[in-house]
């Protein structure tokens, strides 16, 4: 099963007869051809490991000089002025906007994604289930800049109503507080568009695990008189839980690193604007800050500051993806 979402549980799918493919170790004859080809394969694997390591090493080594010159606290400052003799920059605001927009996207996309995956695996009539799956997959093929463009020019104005409603009626709640941003281009809008963007990832992976629910579990539930919904709640969902968690994590990773759509969607704030917890504020995420700053990469010191931000983003996505991986690994150990 291949999908445009680029995520899969490939590691879990065993070979055709339930075993992993033959190692054929004895067939490696030690002849020149075998040594060359085997070497090339190991080399390619080493390249992949090397690349990830290099990303970490290079980002770190180029961020350090700038971090040493930084006169503000990198982790707790909300300032961002990277040039000149006295650079002062910190990531607190970037971190907040990144995490807030991604979590909002997750809060919208996970329930819908699970429901769509259940629809495809359990509810859709047979003729519809395959086309439905490819349709949702197609959403992942839309380039992010087009999501941004569409969100800004088409969807944005339609969200004015709900944004104003929340601001006016729930303004006492810190997340919905009034801010200086007048238009619809807020973290709120970015959260909605990000949710649409990660929906196919969450759906694709959840669908794969739901489809693997042992038929005997489902039949057992139905035989005991469960309705279809009760069968899903007692057999399908518990079985798919680890898969759904790792799907959500992968979606979160994608949302944290999304660049162009967010860059287009959220208005930048003027230097020195007071920090606000509100969803209706503007600002930048790590990724959009780096993309917007690309024109400023003229001295190593400035570039280094952005690279430091990129490093934090890399670590953040590394952790999130590693959790996704560990959850699925543990499920594997559990089901075998």
């Amino acid at each position: 099963m291949q999908s445009v979402t680029g995520v899969s549980i490939a590691d879990e799918t065993a070979g055709p007869h339930g075993q992993s493919p033959l190692a054929g170790d004895g067939a490696g004859t030690g002849r020149l051809g075998d040594r060359l080809f085997g070497g090339a394969a190991i080399g390619a694997g080493a390249i992949v490991v090397g690349l990830v390591t290099l990303i970490g090493v290079f980002l770190l080594s180029q961020a350090i000089p700038s971090l040493m010159k930084n006169e503000a606290n990198f982790l707790t400052s909300t300032e961002w002025s990277v040039g000149g003799e006295h650079p002062r920059f910190g990531i607190l605001r970037l971190l907040w906007v990144t995490v807030l927009s991604s979590l909002m996207a997750l809060a919208i996309a996970v329930p819908i994604g699970i429901a769509v995956a259940l629809f495809i695996t359990n509810y859709a009539p047979k003729w519809l289930s395959k086309p439905a799956a490819s349709t949702v997959d197609l959403l992942a093929a839309v380039p992010s800049i087009i999501f941004g463009l569409w969100g800004l020019r088409v969807l944005g104005p339609h969200t004015d109503g709900i944004q104003n409603f929340l601001r006016d009626n729930l303004g006492w709640f810190p997340l919905f507080k009034e801010t200086t941003v007048g238009s619809s281009t807020t973290i709120f809008l970015a959260g909605i568009v990000l949710a649409i963007m990660i929906l196919p990832i969450i759906t694709a992976l959840s669908r794969e695990v739901f489809a693997q629910t042992p038929p005997t579990h489902k039949e057992g539930a139905l035989a005991l008189g469960a309705t279809k919904w009760e069968m899903i709640r007692t057999a399908v969902l518990p079985f798919g839980k680890p898969g759904v968690i790792s799907a959500a994590m992968l979606g979160l990773g994608r949302a944290l690193g999304e660049t162009v759509a967010v860059m287009i969607l959220i208005s930048s704030l003027a230097q020195g604007t007071a920090f606000s917890f509100s969803l209706f504020d503007g600002g930048e995420t790590f990724a959009s800050k780096i993309a917007l700053g690309a024109g400023e990469f003229d001295t190593p010191q400035k570039t280094g500051a952005y690279i430091a931000a990129g490093l934090v983003l890399f670590i953040l996505t590394f952790i999130v993806n590693a959790i996704a991986r560990i959850v699925i690994e543990r499920r594997k150990a559990f089901t075998e």
Binding site: V48, F58, G257, I290, F314
Partner: peptide
């Protein structure tokens, strides 16, 4: 297992970080 894990991590590397890394290596260094 390490290679497989790294492939997963590479899947999750944000595109901006990939760009930034190449910039750091070839343009900066």
């Amino acid at each position: 297992r390490t290679v497989s894990f790294m492939v997963d991590i590479l899947t999750g590397v944000p595109s901006i970080v990939a760009g930034l890394f190449i910039y750091a290596v070839f343009v900066n260094a």
